[in-house]
Amino acid sequence: MNFSDMLKNKKKTTEEEKVASDNQTQSEMEQNVEQAEQPQAEQSAEAEAQEVEEVSAEEKLRAELKEANDKYLRLYAEFDNYKRRTNKERIELLQSAGKDVLLSLLPIADDFDRAIKYMNTSSDIEAVKEGIVLVSSKFKTTLTQKGVKEMESIGTSFDADLHEAITNIPAPSEDMKGKVIDEVEKGYFLNDKVIRFAKVVVGS
């Protein structure tokens, strides 16, 4: 082999090595591109999945909000109906309670009419007095049955929560100072609650 052939062979080998090297470099570049594209594809898939999850969560929140709103509207309607019903029942109760009291007083009114009629035709004063006392007793019994009770004030200590002082007079004794000496107008309780203060005279 002469020197020219050796140069040709060397040149050929160098070219083959260069082609091989270029092929290897291209292969590595393609591999690098594939590796670079793979995370991008994975990130894109993750982003799409996240977006789907966000849309699903938003739809779920909207459904829950709608359900809560519907529940609130139902509760409001039920409460409004309940309020109207209880107001109507309370009015009916007050009206019926007043009716019951008036019905219980009508027989007493009849007794008073009979007593007045008897007074105009009778000369027996004692019988008339007895009839008036009976009517008064019947009236007080009816009040008691309805929860009304007389207030006992004379001889008790003055109490601004129960009594209304009309005037002060000198006490007849030391132990009557600051106590009720006389009663101008009786006080009354309704089921232990004051419905009328007693008008009293207080010793000083």
Results as ranks from 00 to 15, higher is better:
residue 5 D to T: 09
residue 8 K to M: 10
residue 14 T to S: 15
residue 17 E to V: 02
residue 17 E to Q: 09
residue 19 V to C: 08
residue 22 D to I: 05
residue 25 T to R: 07
residue 30 E to A: 12
residue 31 Q to L: 08
residue 35 Q to F: 00
residue 37 E to Q: 09
residue 42 E to N: 11
residue 44 S to H: 09
residue 46 E to C: 01
residue 47 A to Q: 06
residue 48 E to D: 12
residue 49 A to D: 08
residue 51 E to Y: 03
residue 53 E to W: 05
residue 56 S to G: 10
residue 60 K to F: 14
residue 67 E to W: 06
residue 67 E to G: 06
residue 68 A to N: 10
residue 68 A to H: 12
residue 69 N to M: 08
residue 72 Y to G: 04
residue 73 L to W: 08
residue 76 Y to K: 09
residue 77 A to V: 00
residue 78 E to F: 01
residue 79 F to C: 07
residue 83 K to H: 07
residue 89 E to Q: 12
residue 90 R to K: 13
residue 93 L to C: 10
residue 97 A to K: 14
residue 98 G to P: 01
residue 99 K to G: 14
residue 105 L to A: 01
residue 107 P to Y: 00
residue 118 Y to L: 05
residue 118 Y to M: 05
residue 121 T to A: 03
residue 125 I to S: 11
residue 126 E to T: 09
residue 129 K to M: 06
residue 130 E to K: 12
residue 130 E to Y: 12
residue 131 G to S: 14
residue 133 V to P: 01
residue 133 V to I: 08
residue 139 F to C: 00
residue 142 T to D: 07
residue 144 T to G: 13
residue 150 E to F: 09
residue 151 M to A: 04
residue 153 S to F: 08
residue 156 T to Y: 13
residue 156 T to L: 13
residue 158 F to R: 00
residue 159 D to F: 04
residue 161 D to F: 02
residue 165 A to T: 06
residue 169 I to Y: 06
residue 169 I to S: 05
residue 169 I to E: 08
residue 173 S to E: 03
residue 173 S to K: 03
residue 173 S to T: 01
residue 174 E to C: 02
residue 175 D to V: 10
residue 177 K to S: 05
residue 179 K to W: 02
residue 181 I to L: 14
residue 183 E to T: 02
residue 184 V to N: 09
residue 184 V to Q: 10
residue 186 K to R: 15
residue 186 K to H: 13
residue 187 G to Y: 02
residue 188 Y to E: 00
residue 189 F to P: 00
residue 191 N to V: 03
residue 192 D to A: 05
residue 193 K to M: 09
residue 200 V to I: 05
